[in-house]
Simulated scan of single mutants.
Amino acid sequence: MVDIEDTGPIITAILDDPEKYVGQDICMCGEAIQFSDVAKVFTKVTGVPASVKTLTEAEYRLGMQFAPKFIQDEFLAMFQWFQEYGYYGKDKDWTTGKQLTGLNTFEQWLKKNGWKGQ
């Protein structure tokens, strides 16, 4: 997860010293949080009960029935990729962005924005 407001400081750091970062992968991730923990953190911060449910493929397709099948297939493949390889891939260091600047965690983002899920 990444707070969109954290992108500016990372881009600034790269532009301030481009020779240092040319050719490097900079992964922006405030924290690697398990999907099941998102609901726990949300409930802790907001006081609003939340739960997580992993959908079966049939449930997913039912919820995406408004989209053409090829779009459903593409999204499903993307989610399967994330599950197997993570967002950046198995061998990427997702902390490289944190080495440039402090990045907000999901909990910090919730507290900062006051989002309650509405």
Rank of each mutant, 00 (worst) to 15 (best):
G47V: 10
V48Y: 14
V48K: 15
V48F: 08
V48C: 14
P49M: 11
P49E: 15
A50I: 06
A50E: 14
A50G: 09
A50C: 08
A50V: 10
A50T: 03
A50P: 07
S51R: 12
S51V: 12
S51W: 10
S51C: 10
S51L: 09
V52N: 15
V52G: 08
V52L: 15
K53M: 05
K53T: 03
T54K: 11
T54N: 11
T54D: 12
T54R: 14
L55Y: 01
T56E: 04
T56C: 05
T56R: 04
T56Q: 07
T56K: 04
T56A: 03
T56N: 12
E57V: 05
A58P: 01
A58C: 01
E59C: 04
E59M: 06
E59L: 02
Y60H: 04
Y60E: 00
Y60R: 00
Y60C: 00
Y60V: 04
R61G: 03
R61F: 04
R61Q: 03
R61T: 01
R61Y: 04
L62Q: 10
L62Y: 06
L62E: 05
G63V: 00
G63S: 00
G63Y: 00
G63I: 01
M64V: 01
M64C: 12
M64Q: 11
Q65I: 01
Q65T: 00
Q65S: 07
F66M: 09
F66T: 02
F66V: 03
A67H: 05
A67W: 00
A67V: 00
P68I: 00
P68H: 12
K69M: 10
K69G: 13
K69S: 14
F70P: 12
F70K: 07
F70C: 08
F70M: 06
F70W: 09
F70H: 10
F70D: 13
F70L: 09
I71H: 07
I71G: 06
I71N: 05
I71Q: 02
Q72T: 05
Q72G: 07
Q72H: 03
Q72D: 05
D73Y: 01
D73N: 15
D73V: 02
D73F: 02
D73Q: 12
D73K: 06
E74D: 13
E74L: 14
E74V: 01
F75G: 00
F75Y: 06
L76I: 07
L76Y: 08
L76A: 10
L76R: 03
L76H: 08
A77D: 13
A77Y: 07
M78I: 06
M78P: 05
M78S: 10
F79Q: 11
F79W: 08
Q80L: 09
Q80G: 04
Q80S: 13
Q80Y: 02
W81T: 14
W81L: 11
W81K: 15
W81R: 14
F82C: 05
F82Q: 07
F82G: 10
F82N: 09
F82R: 11
Q83P: 05
Q83A: 14
Q83D: 15
Q83F: 09
E84P: 07
E84H: 14
E84V: 09
E84F: 11
Y85G: 05
Y85E: 14
Y85A: 09
Y85N: 15
G86R: 12
G86M: 05
G86N: 14
G86L: 11
Y87G: 13
Y87D: 10
Y87H: 11
Y88I: 06
Y88D: 06
Y88W: 15
Y88L: 05
G89R: 09
G89A: 08
G89D: 12
G89W: 13
K90I: 12
K90S: 13
K90V: 09
